[in-house]
Amino acid sequence: MTQTEALREYLLRLADSDMILGQRLCELCGKAPALEEEMAVMNVALDLIGQARNWYEYAAELIDDGRDADKLAFLRDAHDYRNLLLTEQPNEDYAVTMGRQFFFDVWHYFTLTSLTESSDERIAGIASKAVKEATYHLRRSSEWVKRLGDGTEESHQRMQDAVDILWRFTGELITPDDTDRVLAEAGIGPEPDQLAQDWRGMANEVLTQATLTPGAEDAWMYMGGKHGEHTEHLGFILAEMQFLQRAYPDATTW
């Protein structure tokens, strides 16, 4: 794998993960447990899809086959999507929504922090802006995990169930493949061991404070999103998200 190939692949992972998690959060519009949360959920979603657009634009330039950011987002099928499996998991109850957000935010925060020092200036520039947003996202989701974990008996049980349900998708966040390794060696992407260590450290710390039990480190992990092998959920997400683009292929302006 060449560095350019790895870079294209990696940008799509960043973009698609932001996009799909943002889309999941959009589904919550009008359904959050409090009005303050309506604002916060939409705010986080707005940040994520805004970041996705930046990554798509850079990816489109490198791919250079005439597709722009919109075409990358709205005209690729599931097998071409490179998002982390975690991001496509359904909202379920607010514990699952928040658990998914927290596991993602820890990964996102450390990834973006590392990318601010990327040898690729364009990446460093996008990451520098995005990491400010991700810092807020992580603070918010950590607080919620603690509130729910250490709140009432019911919320504790729900939050622990959420951790148990989602744990199998966390391995993908910190298990490197060739793409990750090539970019790490080139000083473009995060150093995989460091990322894994940081993720585990922060996740365990917050879960412990929240009186929750993390999953086992050697637990079986469900992976494949980074290579386009997804759970059954992604097809439905795309069917909804790409409806207009597919139903009106001749429309070039909206």
């Binding site: 607010y94 509130r147 709140g151 019911e154 729900r158």
Partner: peptide, 11 residues
Amino acid sequence: GAWVRQAAVAY
């Protein structure tokens, strides 16, 4: 969402 708000208060 009642259980979420209750948890926030309890915490």
